[in-house]
Design a protein around this nucleic acid. Sequence first.
DNA 1: AGTTTCAGTGAACGTTTGTACACTCACCAG
DNA 2: CTGGTGAGTGTACAAACGTTCACTGAAACT
Lengths: 237, 237
Amino acid sequence: MSDSRSRSSSRSSPERSSTGSSREPSEARAENGSRAERKEQTRRKLLDVTLRLITERSLAGISLREVAREAGIVPTAFYRHFASMDELGVDLVDESMRPLRQMLREARKGRVAHGDIITETVAVLAKQVRAHPDQFRFLTRERYGGVAAVRRAISTELRLFTSDLTVDLARLTSGFNWSTDDLEMVADLMVTAMLGTITTLLDQRDRHPEDSVSILTLAEKQLRLVVLGMSAWRSEA
Amino acid sequence: MSDSRSRSSSRSSPERSSTGSSREPSEARAENGSRAERKEQTRRKLLDVTLRLITERSLAGISLREVAREAGIVPTAFYRHFASMDELGVDLVDESMRPLRQMLREARKGRVAHGDIITETVAVLAKQVRAHPDQFRFLTRERYGGVAAVRRAISTELRLFTSDLTVDLARLTSGFNWSTDDLEMVADLMVTAMLGTITTLLDQRDRHPEDSVSILTLAEKQLRLVVLGMSAWRSEA
DNA sequence: AGTTTCAGTGAACGTTTGTACACTCACCAG
DNA sequence: CTGGTGAGTGTACAAACGTTCACTGAAACT
C-alpha cells in the first residue's frame, strides 16, 4: 500500500562539477547539510517515526523494518544508528524525560508558597503534555511495558523526579523536623498522583479534547489535599 | 531448542474396546473428566501459560503459536477457545479483577474507623499480590499496554473500583456535606496511590523479596495522609 | 445402535520478521 | 588529487508468524 516512497533519491546531482568554483563547504547544495547533519536527520526521523507508531501499539509490537520503512531507509541502514529497537527506546526515554525534569525543577525554584508551586507545576505539566503528547504516551505505555531496558530507564529517571521533589519538600518544611523517609513518602505520593493525571489527560484527549480544565483542577485539588495532610500530619505524629 | 514436547499424544488408546464392559461414564478412565471439563482444562492452561509468559514480555509480544505450543496443543486448536490473543487478554482481565474487587468491597464492609479500613485494605491487597503476582504483573503491564481492547477492559474495571470507594467514602463522611465530585477526587487519589503501591511491590519482589513490609507501611502512611488531608479540607473549603 | 458434535490434528499458504553480506559512492581529511 | 570512512543500498535466507482447510475419533445425544 504505502510502498511508493522509497524511490526519492535516484538522481543524485543535477549539475555536478560544472564551473569548478564549488569548493567551499558553505555553498548552497541542493541536498542539505554536512555528513554528520544528514546522519542526525535520519536518526531524528527514526525516533519520530517510532514515537508516531507507538500511539496505537507498544514498542514490542513495532518492528525494526517498519520503522526503517517509514523513515525512508532500507532495514539494514537502521543499524548505523541503533543496535536494536530496544536501544532506540532507551534513547527515546532520555530525550523525553530530561527536559521535562529540568522544567519541573525550575517551576519550583524561588517559590515558597505552596499554592504557587502547585499551580505552576500542574501548568507546566499540562503544557508539556499538550505540546508533546506522543512522548508522554510513549512513557506511560512503556513504563511497565514489555521491554526491560526501557522499563529500567524510565524507572531510573522517575526516581530522580521523586528525589528532586524530596529535596524541595525538605526546604519547604525546614523547621518542622520531617524525617527524610516521610518526605520521600509524600514526594512519591505526589509524583504518583501527577503520573495518574498525565494518563487521564492522555485518555481524555482522544475522546473529547477540551475537558483538560476539569482534569487539571482535579489534579490541583489532589495535590492541595496532600499538602493539607502534611500540615495535619506534623501536628500529629 | 524446546521442540521435543509436541510428541506426547501419539498413541491414543492403549487397550481400546477389549472386554466390552466399559460402558458406564463413572468408570476410572486413564484420561480425566467429561468433554466440557477437558475443554475447560485446556482453556485454563492457555490462560495460565499466557500469564506466565507475560512476566517478561507484553501481551503484544506473545504469539498465539507460542501459547498454544506451551499449552500442548496445535496452533489451530487455539481458536476453539479464543478468537484471538486479544480476546484471551480481555478474559484474563475479568478473571483477575472481579474477585479482587469483591474482596476489597468486603474488606471495607461494616467497619467505621478509618484506621481499621486502611490497615485492612492494604493487608488484603498485599495478600492478593503475594498470592497471584502474575495476575497483577499482567494488569500493570497491560493497563497502558499495546492492546486497545485489554486497555479498555482494565480501565472500565478500575473505574468500578473508584466508584465503589466513592460510595464508601460518602457513607463515612455523611454529615460533613462533601460534594460527589470531591469524594470522587479523593477516591481517585487513593486508588492511584494503591496502584502505585502494587507496582512498587512487584518491582521489589524480584530484587530482594522481603522488603514488602516497608512498602506496605509506606502505603498505609500515604493513605493516612490523604485521610488527614480530608479532615483539614472539610474545615477549610 | 446410529448420528451428531466438536476439541484437537497436521499440512500448507503467504507474510513479515531480524540479520548477514557484499556493494556503492558522496563526503571529508591528508 | 587521492584514499579512507561510513551512511545507505540490494539481495538473500532461515525462522516465525496468523490463518485456511480437510481430517479424525472419542464423547454426547437421540
